[in-house]
């Protein structure tokens, strides 16, 4: 019994085709609302957490404990005058923030969310190749950032885009290799080892315990992908003003900002699913979704702590880290995974 079936049950009087179509649409809307609410909550959480870390109070004026601050900010950003640079490359400049944002929301549609009491399984879309799909979408998002950098006709933005490319290229391969190691290990137990759902449901131990190296590599790669300190190469706010988003104002800028937090959240959920058991836990048939969110939020807080305590690393050292350390380590990890699977039969 999944949430789709549940909605269809309500709409079944419309017949099979229309009922399912409407159920899909409603489910998608629920997903977008869920993602938006989670992101707004995360930004609020970040600002409060950052304030605590920095001996401040944080937002406390709009609403109780400043809870409506984010809505006020969003309204402010929407009301802002949108300034377009004169010599922009029009289409890439305008499309780029949407690529980042909708790529992000799309990725959430393929995550397995586990069960939640009467709603049953909350997963939106089932796919046997969801791992491939999610990482393909993750690779689209930097394209938006690069387009923004090139389309702005600004040297800071261009350099931000160049740094983004350098960063993403050097961390993509280690990230994929460490995911591959999990797929290798899962393939011993499930025929659909490219499906994130079956990878998580068939695990005996969380993969983070079997592959601590993979967890480390994947975590670092996700920090780089989400692009916050120490790897905030795209923005580099003290060097390149604001990197690829220098020329953006108003809502388009907000989309980049949300994209950053969304990537942190997505990355945390992915780490939670792949390495620390995802929705598995006590009573997971009833509250698996809660487990996933709790694990995700703990990882989000760890990410925030890293973000707030680290200076930015220099770009050449960053690229070196990716190619010279993470890549060999992730290869070793892959070999180890193969040995564990074939040799020991785990």
């Amino acid at each position: 019994m999944s949430i789709l079936q549940w909605i269809y049950g309500v709409l079944s009087f419309l017949g099979h085709d229309i009922g399912y179509a409407l159920a899909y649409i409603i489910e998608s809307i629920i997903l977008v609302i869920f993602v938006s609410v989670m992101l707004i909550f995360m930004i609020y959480l970040f600002r409060k957490y950052m304030a605590r870390v920095q001996q401040r109070i944080g937002p406390n004026r709009v609403g109780k404990f400043g809870s409506l601050q984010l809505i006020a900010d969003a309204l402010k950003l929407m009301g802002k005058e949108i300034i377009f640079p004169k010599e922009r490359d029009d289409l890439p400049y305008k499309v780029a923030p949407f690529i980042v944002f909708f790529g992000l929301v799309l990725a959430f549609a393929f995550l397995p969310y586990g069960n939640l009491s009467i709603f049953g399984n909350l997963t939106v879309t089932y796919s046997d190749v969801s791992i491939i799909f999610i990482f393909a979408i993750l690779a689209i998002m930097p394209i938006g950032e690069v387009l923004a950098g090139i389309g702005s006709h600004n040297k800071y933005a261009l350099m931000g885009a160049l740094r983004t490319v350098a960063k993403d290229v050097s961390f993509e391969v280690p990230m994929m290799l460490s995911v591959l190691a999990i797929v290798v290990m899962a393939s011993a137990r499930t025929p659909t080892s490219l499906s994130l759902e079956s990878v998580v449901t068939t695990e005996i131990l969380p993969y983070g315990i079997l592959e601590p190296i993979g967890l480390l590599v994947f975590f670092i790669a996700m920090v780089a992908r989400a692009s916050y300190s120490p790897f905030d190469m795209g923005e580099s706010d003290s060097e390149l003003v604001s990197g690829y988003s220098t020329e953006y104002t108003g809502m388009r800028f907000a989309l980049f900002y949300i994209g950053l937090f969304g990537t942190i959240f997505l990355g945390s959920l992915l780490i939670a699913l792949l390495y620390i058991g995802g929705f598995n836990g006590p009573f997971s048939s009833q509250v698996g979704f809660i487990w996933l969110i709790v694990k995700g939020l703990i990882l989000v807080l760890i990410s925030f702590t890293i973000w707030l305590s680290m200076p930015r690393i220099r770009i050449d050292r960053l690229v070196n880290t990716g190619w010279k350390y993470l890549l060999p380590i992730s290869f070793i990890n892959l070999v180890l995974a193969g040995v564990l699977t074939l040799g020991l039969g785990w």
């Binding site: 870390v53 920095q54 001996q55 300190s229 706010d237 003290s238 305590s309 680290m310 200076p311 930015r312």
Partner: peptide, 16 residues
Amino acid sequence: YGLDLGMLTPFFYCFA
């Protein structure tokens, strides 16, 4: 100097 290097937090400790 922390801000120059992309380090947000110590700034507030110094200013406090």
